[in-house]
Write a protein that binds this DNA or RNA. Sequence first.
DNA 1: TCCTCAATAGGAACAACGCTCCGCTTCTCG
DNA 2: CGAGAAGCGGAGCGTTGTTCCTATTGAGGA
Lengths: 214, 214
Amino acid sequence: MTDPLTDSAGVPPSDTPKRSDARRNQAAILAAAGRVFARSGVNAPVREVAAEAGVGMGTLYRHFPTRADLVVALYRHQVEECAEAALALLEQAESPFAALLAWVHQFVDFLGTKHGLGAVWQGDDAGFSALHQLFLDRLVPALAELFAAARASGELVADVRPYELLRAVGDLVAWAPDDPDYDVRRTVTLLVTGLRHELPTPRPPAPDPTSPPR
Amino acid sequence: MTDPLTDSAGVPPSDTPKRSDARRNQAAILAAAGRVFARSGVNAPVREVAAEAGVGMGTLYRHFPTRADLVVALYRHQVEECAEAALALLEQAESPFAALLAWVHQFVDFLGTKHGLGAVWQGDDAGFSALHQLFLDRLVPALAELFAAARASGELVADVRPYELLRAVGDLVAWAPDDPDYDVRRTVTLLVTGLRHELPTPRPPAPDPTSPPR
DNA sequence: TCCTCAATAGGAACAACGCTCCGCTTCTCG
DNA sequence: CGAGAAGCGGAGCGTTGTTCCTATTGAGGA
C-alpha cells in the first residue's frame, strides 16, 4: 500500500502556486495526521494533530477546514487503488460474482484498518460531503462495473443498486471494532449472498405511515 | 405502543424505598428526556434534559450516570414488546421465514424512529454495556426462537447466529438518516434473504493479514 | 408537633474539544 | 533591499460532559 506519509500531499504541484512554507506545513500536517490517526483514531483531537505537526490551530484549519478534508487527503490514494482493483479482480476471479465478493471484502479490509473511519465515512453532519463524495465518485462506478458483469452472468439477480450495497457495507464496517463474537466479514458475505435472489416484495409488512411508496 | 412518558419510571415501586422527591425527580427527568430526545435526538445535550426537567446537573447524574442509562429506562418497554412480538409473528405469518423477516422489519422500524439511537445502541465506549446488554438479553433470545423455527422449516440455511444478524441490522439502521436514495429496509431484506443460502467459504479472499489491498 | 440528620438537590466549576479571529512573521517579487 | 501580501500561531470563545461541595428537605423518632 502506498504510504501517504511519504508520497503525501495529494496536491498536484501544478495547481499550487502557494508559498513554500505553506506547502511545507501542509505536508507536515498530513504526516502528523497519519501518525495521530493511526495512534488515536480519526477522531483524535485536532489540537493533537496540530501539536504533532508543530503548527498552530489556525494553520491546520486553513489547510483543512474540516476533519474530513484531512482524512480525504490522507486516504485518497487508497480509495483510488481500491477502485482500480475492480477490473483486475474481474479478470482473475473465476466468476464475476466471485470478483464482486472479493472486491467487497477488499473494501472491508480497507475500511477496517482505519478504526473510527466509519464516523467520517457516514458523515455525522457537515464533513459529510467530502469523504462521502469521494467514495461515491470513485467506488460506486467501480462497483457498478462488477455489478454489470455479475448480472450478465446471471449470478446477480436482486434489484439492488451499487450505491445501496456500498453504503450498507460501509455502515456495517463502520462499527465493527474489537468484538471477538462478531466478524463483519461474515455479515458482508451474507449480504452479498443475498444478491443471488430476487428481493421479496418491496415492502414486506408495509405499515404505511405518511410516506407514499416509491 | 405504550408511552414511556406516561407510564414512565421503569422503577418497580417495591425496590424503591427512595425519598418522595427523588422519585418525583426521576420521573420528571424521564419525561423531559422523552421530549428532548424526540426533539433533538438521543445525543441532545445533557444540560438540555436537566433544564427541561427543571432539575440540576447533579440530580440528573445521580439518577442516570450515563446517557445510556437514560435511554434504557426510556425504551425498555418497547424493547420488551419487540421481543414478545416474535411469538405472535410466528403464529400469524405464513411461514417461519416470513415471520423472521417481518420481525426484523419491526425491529428496524423501532430503531428507526429514534434517530441517533444507533450511536447509543452500538455503544461508542462506556455507555456500551447498558443498552447493548438490554438488547442482547431480550432480543437475541427472541430472534433465536425465530431462527430455530425457520431452520426447522428448512428456509434458513446459512450458518449465522442470531446475534450476528441482530447486530448487523442494528449497525445498518444506526445510520440511516434522511437519505432519499437509500432505504435501509431494502438492505435489511437483502441481508435476511442471504440467510437462505449456505455461506460461501468462511474466509473468501483473506490470506494475507499484513497487506490489505493488492 | 417539632427536631434531627442522612439522603437529595442544585449548580458552580473544571476539563476537553471544535472553531474563529487577529496581530505578528516570513516569503516573494520587483 | 524593501514593501505588500500570504501565511502563521495561539489566545480565546462557546459548547458539552462530568465532578464536587454546600444548602435543602423529607421522614421517622421524641
